[in-house]
Nucleic acid binder design. Structure first.
Lengths: 346, 346
DNA sequence: TTGAAAGCGGTACCAT
DNA sequence: ATGGTACCGCTTTCAA
């Protein structure tokens, strides 16, 4: 009785070689005579043989699976991506996916609710993940420490992490914010508000630092009323803008923490009768395609998701190949000038 | 030498029972004495035992893995979701994920490039997928037919499909479009343009049909110049709006095929000096959160992604449990009135 | 109610 | 260059 699956044994029989040989033409882990190899390959093609990765894993094959995680949600990454404030991560995820598959890795997105640190590691091993890519905004998650302590091959994205088998990839947030700020300064703005989550380690702090550096380099004194702390969400950005307006502190430009925040800053300004860029200039961060769809189009700082994805996979490949984990990588950012910025009213 | 994994054998030894028994307390496929059961469970907890699903699958356990696919892209679903025109699908995906995990299923998103129909099915079996959920805009994909012919348990979302082991879940697109059109008619609009991909089987045709029905029910004659065909992309919507404006045909409202299209219709109108809703009313479709972020906020038709996700998983569960596949399911839609619609200028 | 043993589809070590 | 075979961790008859 013919079962559904074609097995390596069938291939071996039809090719008149041993099961061992078939295994080796697939894995190329030891030389096989060209003729034999050729014949086996033909049979494989003819039978439509497909290796059973589960069985291979069980038997001890080297895993090519990379787990992709984003701590902080209730379930897997997808749950979080649905929120507009995570649209940037979708692009990043896509870049990671593209480079991972190009490098021959399979991607695994754990679906069951994450548990404690120990359970998390066990599950990773249980699923035979060779390494893990962690995208996070939640930095003090115990799982982060668990990965580091266990020396599990890890690349952190958009957050810092370093260990013998771990490194991180982040955008040059500070430089991006610096460029954005200098752009506003060059246009003649001096009263520049900032609405962002400066408390967040990488993206928040970095952007905050860059903006502040540019301001002080230009000799502009900071008005504390212009520095607003807000979560990354649309609502928070909107509310922070309302607070800014109510404070009565004069301002001619706003540096938003992200494109999504910028769009909501603009919405709040519009709801209060202020036009962008005529009355106020607004700069975002990320360069989502969304920024070209809205009116005015968004001046923003581009994060190079493709370069980030490439760096992530390259770093992980090295770690998995036994090379020492590379130093944390900083990916350049670039200012993109569009329609939401202009010179302030004289 | 202690290996990393805790195996069922260790649990058995520590509990003083056979390996078989442990297996059965886990699978509950045969009765186990309460006392024994209790003890085994304790040991499992103490050792932090985690079953190896790969091994279980190999040995013939019933799979609880559901594959999630979206034909049409170059790689897996994620690649397509990055485009704004797919933002709706992200929400849908999230709902499916939530209901799938709640029902105890694991989700698998195939990552390697899809191949021919035969290879696709083989891979599904090779990965031990119990069933598959297909979200698609590409209807004549050979894999669709392959799934149907092989009677592989399948639920199609946002597209039609029917077989002994297959059914489909879609929004009531026609009714949604009808509601949107009646809303515009009630406001006093008579010259209503439509910009959508009416050629697409479910979402396109359905919405088109509903709109047309409402118009003819109101005795409004259709001006063919007001019916524009456009892809779902931001660019296409923008260009179609430009064509509409250039045609010189008068209109006071636009029914867009989706929220993303609506946003770009509004952008195009703005670029031509027309304001929404003062000069033109615009209605979207989907009810993305995005619609509350832009100004004006978007009047739209809500698709109930949560209900869709629930229906998908429930249908699949039935099929997997051996019940006959349910009839195709139509999920109700609802009009959401916001700021992009108003009475036409007198 | 519980055990023992035969695989599931591969890989890798040890031979030849 | 190629075979033989002992597992990998678990499920499932078949027996007791």
């Amino acid at each position: 009785m013919r079962r559904g699956r074609v097995t390596i044994a069938e291939v071996a029989e039809r090719a008149g070689v041993s099961l061992t040989t078939v295994s080796h033409v697939l894995s190329a882990r030891r030389p096989v005579a060209p003729g034999t190899r050729q014949r086996v390959l033909e049979i494989i093609d003819e039978l439509g043989y497909e290796p059973d990765s589960a069985a291979a894993g069980l038997a001890g094959a080297r895993s090519t699976t990379i787990a992709l995680d984003a701590f902080g949600g209730t379930s897997w990454a997808l749950s979080q991506l649905v929120e507009p404030e995570s649209y940037f991560y979708i692009g990043l995820l896509r870049a990671i996916e593209a480079h991972a598959t190009a490098a021959g890795y399979d991607l695994l997105m754990p679906s069951r609710p994450q548990d404690d640190a120990g359970g998390y590691l066990r599950r990773l091993r249980s699923r035979r993940a060779a390494g893990v890519v962690v995208m996070a905004r939640n930095f003090d998650d115990p799982r982060t420490r668990a990965l580091l302590e266990a020396q599990f091959p890890t690349v952190f994205v958009d957050m810092f992490g370093r260990g013998p088998k771990a490194t991180s990839v982040t955008s040059d947030n500070a430089d991006g914010a610096r460029q954005a700020t200098e752009h506003l300064l060059a246009l003649g703005h001096r009263r520049i508000a900032r609405i962002s989550k400066a408390a967040d380690p990488m993206a928040g702090q970095g952007r905050n630092t860059g903006a502040r550096a540019a301001l002080s380099a230009a000799g502009v004194l900071e008005d504390p009323r212009l520095v607003l702390e807000a979560e990354w969400t649309p609502d928070a950005a909107y509310q922070a803008t309302v607070r800014l307006l109510r404070s009565g502190a004069p301002f001619t430009a706003v540096l938003a923490g992200s494109d999504v925040m910028a769009i909501n800053v603009i919405a709040a300004l519009a709801d209060h009768g202020l036009r962008v860029p005529e009355d106020v200039s607004v700069v975002g961060f990320d360069d989502l395609q969304l920024g070209t769809m809205v009116r005015p189009t968004l001046t923003t700082v581009r994060q190079d998701t493709d370069a980030m994805g490439a760096a992530v996979i390259e770093a992980l490949r090295r770690i998995l190949d036994g090379e020492p984990a590379p130093e944390p990588i900083l990916v350049p950012t670039a200012l993109v000038v569009r329609g939401s910025t202009a010179a302030p009213r004289p």
